[in-house]
Design a protein around this nucleic acid. Sequence first.
DNA 1: CACGACTCCTGCTGGC
DNA 2: TGCCAGCAGGAGTCGT
Length: 273
Amino acid sequence: MPELPEVETTLRGLSPYLENCIIQDVIIRKAQLRWPIPLDLSVRINQQTIHSLSQRGKYLLIHLDKNSLIIHLGMSGNLQIVEQSQLPKLHDHVDFLLSSNKILRYQDPRRFGSILLTEQNQNPLEHPLLNSLGLEPLSEQFHGNYLKKVAKKRRVPIKSFIMNSKIVTGVGNIYAAEALFLSRIHPLTEAGRLTQPQCDRLAIAIKDILQAAILQGGTTLKDFVNSEGKPGYFSQKLFVYGRADLPCLLCDTPLLSIKLGQRSTVFCPKCQK
DNA sequence: CACGACTCCTGCTGGC
DNA sequence: TGCCAGCAGGAGTCGT
């Protein structure tokens, strides 16, 4: 389940292999993702040069001569550079054949991801999926004052609030739970009732946890090609996510698990008020 | 507008 | 052992 750090790790791993390559062909084995992959994708991007890669929230953007690919990894998606001799496996849905004679291969067992293409000369940030996204959590503009301001009068639980990509992008279920633990905030607290110090702590916790995960992910970058590209959180120590009923790592109180917005949410009833 | 429920999909786990 | 229900999760969309 890629979260923002995994998208960032993927971007860093892929960039050296993709930049300045020409896309020579696209093979779509299964077009049915979150939305269907455009069937004319191949004719629209063949012979275009890949100029650069960037990221917006959990979307990965691949900038070509005339348009941009918008790729989302969903929760089981994965992009790999493989040799042409490597045969596709069960859930390898798309191959981009590159002028370097390598293949950029998209794999996604649960098919929650997406591969879309902007119109010619359209700024990808103006694409309907991207144009109403909230702030990037690692940007300077994202801080406690911003949270305090946008949370005013909002009554949703703070966990749902920070997972709302229109407020801040890239915070999924794992890091939302962890950030709330680190900032000692109860996940059910109404967003609008957070104090300024709580907003400050929360913004810092979100940045810290994401940056730590990116650093961890970076340690596997050298093996990026032909590796499984394991998500950063596998090696990151998690305080609450997946630890329901286990003792809190700070105070030994058993962690509680509740359902919040269809998502399991684990927290420490003593540390988080 | 704000918010909760629902939905897509496959792989894994646990209960019987 | 085998089957099946239940769960996991991002985020767009729909209904209230």
